[in-house]
Amino acid sequence: MKSVVTTVIAAADAAGRFPSTSDLESVQGSIQRSAARLEAAEKLAANLDNVAKEAYDACIKKYSYLNNAGEANSTDTYKAKCARDIKHYMRLIQYCLVVGGTGPLDEWGISGQREVYRALGLPTAPYVEALSFARNRGCAPRDMSPQALSEYNTLLDYAINSLS
């Protein structure tokens, strides 16, 4: 699993050298932010179902057409689809907070996933909308500390950026 620490060590090992001062500074920076990341990870884990539900509820509300009875994406099932996929991305974001790097999203959520969405003609817009809602909704200190929220939002942006 790729993290700041494993990336630094792998680069140093590949070059047959000790980690440089700037390598150690980036590890130090990651460790300094770890308390905020773990706070965000803990809050997200405790509220995963609510966060995912809120995000897809917002998406449904925004595109009320999706609620029309008998439409191809009528309420319950469409919500469920979003819930399944949003939860998957939220879980990867939570792993990233724990790891302190974007490895889990890169390896399990992004690499190749863009190709699959394109090849199958699957719409990415609902996920992007739902994750954007989650990013705009987070509030400090109500939900978590400002530092934790910043870590969380950075990863949401990363997921939105790479999915779209």
Partner: peptide, 11 residues
């Protein structure tokens, strides 16, 4: 292409 989702946003 797959048209299953073509009406998704009703715009």
């Amino acid at each position: 292409m797959d048209k299953r989702f073509s009406g998704l946003f009703n715009l």
